[in-house]
Amino acid sequence: MVKAMQESKGDKMFLIGTYIYLCIALVIVLYPLIYILSASISSPQAVNSGEMWLFPKDITWAGYELVFNNPKIWNGYLNTIIYTVVGTLLNLAVTLPAAYALSRSDFIGRNWFMGFILLTMFFSGGLVPTYLVVKNLGLIDTMGALILPVAASVWNIVVARTFFQSTIPKELQEAAHIDGCTNIKLFWKIVLPLSAPIVAVMALFYGVGHWNSYFSSLIYLNSESKYPLQMVLRQILVLQEMSAEMNGAGVSGEIAQAMNSKAETASLIKYGVIVVSTLPIIAVYPFLQRYFVQGVMIGSVKG
């Protein structure tokens, strides 16, 4: 009895310690986040001189106005959502079956396949040959150019494989085979439903990748109507930041003046753009969190 009391005291201390640790983590992370929010609506002068350090000062909405007055922004949002959804679905369709196959110890040749895939993590032909492949496939300036060249990632396949390997009990597979269940059925009907956490993680990793990507669109897209959000935001930023380097050809007194007046909003926009592009994807996260609950899987297996 005494022992149990002591231990629960120890547990309490441990729990309190955990809470304190998390609270510290929260504060450390929260501060810069609030700073960004505040900086996006404070006067740039206050931000750069260090007067604004927590709460907004000399509130101005000019940054957001500039972003949202841009007619391309909504189209950009729409494109990004389409690319993200379609792209992520394709990623999952390619990654999960492959990762599952690689996780099976009775899959002859899996080490060869693994090596085949891993090698691409290190050796790449570079920008130009890849561009030529995309071009020869006729994908330039199409949605396919943003989706097919990133249809899978080695890293994610390996992570998913590890998950399957360590959490899907071998007994399950054998029992299913004895019942006459084919591999396809096994994967679709049993493995996938049990693997909600990794599906959620993969969807998140790939989805965020698509959401944040701009390099593919920069290289492969020509028409502005197809630009994703990140490209549109980049265009806005570039225009603002031309003031940074005002030397050289093509600069006249008038442009210098215009750039100077824009430099004011440039720093505002820098912060605003983060908020605009990040909020939607952050909002998705809480919905995925429920898949990370301990014991989901085993519970359903046994139950």
């Binding site: 369709a93 390619v94 990654t95 079956p97 492959a98 599952y100 196959a101 690689l102 396949f113 085949f116 895939i117 691409t120 050796f123 790449s124 032909g125 570079g126 130009v128 040959p129 890849t130 030529l132 492949v133 496939l137 097919l148 060249p149 249809a151 899978a152 396949i157 591999n183 994967f187």
Partner: peptide, 20 residues
Amino acid sequence: FMLPALLYFLIFHYFPMYGI
């Protein structure tokens, strides 16, 4: 199951590798 992934790596990674 492996086929789509293999095709992907073949086309978009191995094919351009001559660029090395």
